[in-house]
Design a protein around this nucleic acid. Structure first.
Lengths: 121, 121
DNA sequence: CCTTACCTTTACGCAAACGTAAACTTGCAG
DNA sequence: CTGCAAGTTTACGTTTGCGTAAAGGTAAGG
């Protein structure tokens, strides 16, 4: 007996994350998400909702949709399959490096903003 | 006696930061930087170089050139002038909030990447 | 059955951030 | 003086990430 999964319409998610339905459909066009279809209508699961959150996080970090897809694809690993594990680890390392650089940039800018603020006595 | 300031050509900086001269000229078109002219040629000072670094940092963080200009303009305050200090402080706070959110996003993603990595035993 | 709200696809539009080609000009090295 | 590399402007082209109709399908209430 499977517990009833939560389901969402496209506008449910659009409202919740303050984006347009158009954007969500666009992410689908770009293969970032692929909700179930009930007839013609899209039905989003909790997993889809999580994917959308990942997408938006990536966007806030300035990643392109293509890059975000790369990251997301990492989550959909065939579990046991680590055939190309090396490639994946490389990709992960690459992403990590970018994120660490970004964190440095952020910390630098935060310091600068602080200095600017005190300058305004 | 002023110490001789370092000077750079456009391709000096392009090479150093691994971008094209076209990009640098574009930033100038968008009023993000305005190097001295010696005849028709552009001459970049150390201050210009720092500005360029700021621009690139902003880019790595996913800010638009327009947003970056806003940030950069904060650095060029008329020193004593805090006439619109409130507006500026608001702007600074806004930027800071965005940066803090980004840092959260980064930390989240770093954790996720770590989990993914261990999943590849 | 009909309205109303919400969904669908298709497709053209648009701003941002450069790429790229064209057609010069400039400034040294030889 | 002559190359030749590197600079310049002008302007059209390209990609990304949606906005915005247009034209209609669908489901639930009255």
């Amino acid at each position: 007996m499977t517990v009833a999964e939560k389901e969402y319409t496209i506008s449910d998610l659009a409202k919740e994350f303050s984006i347009t339905s158009r954007s969500i459909r666009h992410y689908e066009d770009e293969k970032l998400i692929s909700p179930e279809r009930r007839g013609t209508h899209r039905i989003y699961s909790s997993r889809d909702r999580v994917r959308l959150q990942l997408i938006l996080r990536g966007k806030r970090l300035g990643f392109s949709l293509a890059q975000i897809r790369q990251i997301i694809d990492l989550y959909d690993l065939p579990e046991g399959k680590q055939k190309q594990a090396t490639l994946l680890l490389d990709l992960i390392q690459e992403r990590r490096d970018a994120l660490l650089q970004q964190r440095k940039d952020i910390n630098f800018m935060l310091k600068e903003l602080e200095m600017l603020e005190t300058k305004l006595d």
